[in-house]
Computed example of a mutant assay.
Amino acid sequence: MRNHPRPALFLAALLAGLTPALGPLPASAPALAQEAGQLRPPEGAVRIVNRTGQPATALHAVRSGRTDWGSNLLNRGPLPNNAGFTLRPNAEAGCRFDIRLVLEDGRESLARDQDICANRQLELHTASAAAPPTPSVAQARPNPQARNVSTGTGFVVAPDRVLTNQHVVAGCDRILARAPDGRWLAAVPPAQVDAALDLSILRIPGNPGPALSFRAGPAVRRGEGVVAYGFPLTGLLSADPKLTRGEINALGGIRNDQNNFQISAEVQPGNSGGPLLDMQGHVVGVVVAKLDSRRVQNVDNVNFAVKGEAAQAFLRRAGLSFQTAESRGPERSAADVGDIANRSTVLLRCER
């Protein structure tokens, strides 16, 4: 193997699970094969094509679930419009990657959770509007003198928006969120609420984390594996989030409530409001309750989650845009799903 001209960049790309080419390749590069009018990358490589209409000053490609974008792979200057950049994936890096182009005007073009084993050429077309500079948000501090404190879980569904259960935040004088990076951020009232679904949207400035994607299809089936993620029994158990794996037991809840799933992933007080994810890391529900075995004899481990479709309908009624993704292809490990959930799940503290 010949030496790479930028050893530090090469090492960073290897850590991201990619081996970069030596520079951008024009869309008409003769080294690329052509089949049925479509350009193909060389065997075993992945090609990222800029179709945004302007040059890109940065390209990032990292394994899905990472909390950072790693190094800029454009070590030899901008990637022109209609030009491609070829990567050779590390065989041990898996198939799912997040791709990001940063354009000259500050806009971004994102392609998340891409299966690069099935699709060896990825074209990035649209770009989001350039985000205004985010003002610094001062950290909040828990009030040790609060008379009554309870905790729950929430997860990011849009910029500075966190979804949780309504019962987690009902009657709170003050709501704080502990972000995955350890910061305490204060929710800004009022919350948006759907009492019938037991859901609430909190506005929490300060970027508590990236938004999770809701499952767009196929329809959830009984027996599918799921992961519940959250903060049960805070103060008794460790302060870090907990992962519980289980299955979809039934497509209805208590008294045949069609807004809920019954799940075998065991939940405890504090899990309420946390994400229920499928085995590709997409949200299929919001953990809401468990059947109290002290009140219902001879019943154990019966748990419920608000269906993802019901939660999406609530977000639409609230005027929020959110991300969706198809759940197709090979499943991830529970550990990988937990990594995806971790960067977007927050501990909620209700002070009264």
Rank of each mutant, 00 (worst) to 15 (best):
C350D: 05
G308V: 08
Q34T: 14
R316G: 11
R349G: 04
R63A: 15
N72M: 05
H282T: 03
A91D: 15
R40S: 06
P159H: 05
A311C: 01
R51Q: 13
P210F: 03
P133N: 10
P205N: 09
H60D: 00
F97T: 01
W69D: 12
L74H: 03
R6K: 14
H282W: 02
S272A: 06
A21Q: 12
K290R: 15
P142L: 10
G17K: 01
C117E: 04
P135T: 11
S344G: 02
P269N: 07
G273E: 00
V287H: 01
L276S: 01
S28C: 11
N303P: 06
P7R: 08
R295L: 15
V267N: 02
A130E: 14
T57L: 12
L9Y: 01
V46W: 06
G70H: 06
E92G: 13
A186L: 06
G37P: 07
K242I: 12
A310Y: 06
D105C: 10
V157M: 06
P189E: 03
N75Y: 10
C117I: 07
E326A: 14
V157T: 07
L15G: 10
N82H: 14
A318F: 01
A318Q: 04
T164D: 04
Q121W: 09
F10L: 11
A27M: 12
R6Q: 15
E266V: 11
T19R: 14
A211F: 02
Q38T: 13
G270R: 05
L202E: 00
L202H: 02
V226S: 00
R76W: 09
S150M: 08
G53F: 02
E92A: 15
T19D: 09
L233E: 09
A58H: 09
R40V: 04
A36N: 15
V49P: 04
V284F: 00
A239L: 13
L18P: 04
Q121F: 06
A29Y: 12
V168W: 01
G209S: 12
V62G: 06
D68E: 13
S293L: 09
S293C: 11
A334N: 05
L122S: 13
D98L: 07
I248C: 09
L251Q: 05
R2S: 10
P275C: 04
T244F: 02
S238N: 14
M1P: 12
L124V: 10
E351I: 00
G37W: 13
